[in-house]
Amino acid sequence: MPETPAIDAEDTAAENAGAFVTESAARVAVLERLVEGPAAPGEIAAERSVDAASVKRATEALRDRALTELLVTDDERVYGLTAKGERTLFFLEAEGKI
């Protein structure tokens, strides 16, 4: 009987996170922008031509999944990409999904 290939938990997590990200163009735009460095939702919306409300929802949803992190809360919310977010983006690019 052939051996069943082992399932890599990290690959599965990246695939699941990737599916979540690709359900929304705003989520994709946020991750692609944050790979360049931290940014505020308004900045992301302007640079990526995405509705500001969509970017705000996307940053919060990505933060809930630990793909982004809130870096500054004083005057303006600034988000950064987490290691999990970087892995997910890499997975999506490697799979040709974005």
Rank of each mutant, 00 (worst) to 15 (best):
L70Y: 02
S24L: 03
E32K: 13
T68V: 10
A13C: 05
V78E: 06
T22W: 12
L70K: 01
L71D: 07
E76W: 08
T73G: 09
K56G: 04
D74N: 06
F20Q: 10
A17N: 12
E3K: 15
E69A: 01
L81T: 02
A29Y: 02
V78M: 07
E36C: 09
E32N: 11
A6N: 12
D75P: 15
E43Q: 07
R63D: 00
D74K: 05
R27E: 07
D8N: 15
K84V: 03
V55H: 05
V50M: 04
V72Y: 14
E60G: 05
A58L: 05
A9K: 14
E23S: 14
A46D: 09
A25L: 10
A39S: 11
A6M: 13
R77Y: 07
G85K: 02
L70P: 00
D75V: 04
G18T: 12
A40I: 04
G42K: 10
E32A: 10
I7N: 09
T12P: 04
T68H: 01
E32F: 10
A83V: 07
A14G: 03
T73M: 06
V55M: 04
G42F: 14
S54K: 09
D64Y: 07
A52N: 10
P5V: 14
A25Q: 11
S24G: 02
K84T: 03
E43F: 12
R27Q: 05
P38M: 09
T12I: 12
P5K: 14
L34A: 03
T68L: 01
P2Y: 11
A9D: 06
A53G: 07
K56W: 11
N16V: 13
R33W: 01
A53K: 01
D51P: 11
A83H: 09
A6E: 15
A66H: 07
D64I: 00
T4I: 15
L62G: 00
A26T: 08
D64W: 09
S24C: 03
V50D: 00
G18D: 05
N16L: 15
D74R: 02
S24Y: 06
E47M: 08
A29V: 08
P41R: 01
R33K: 10
D51K: 07
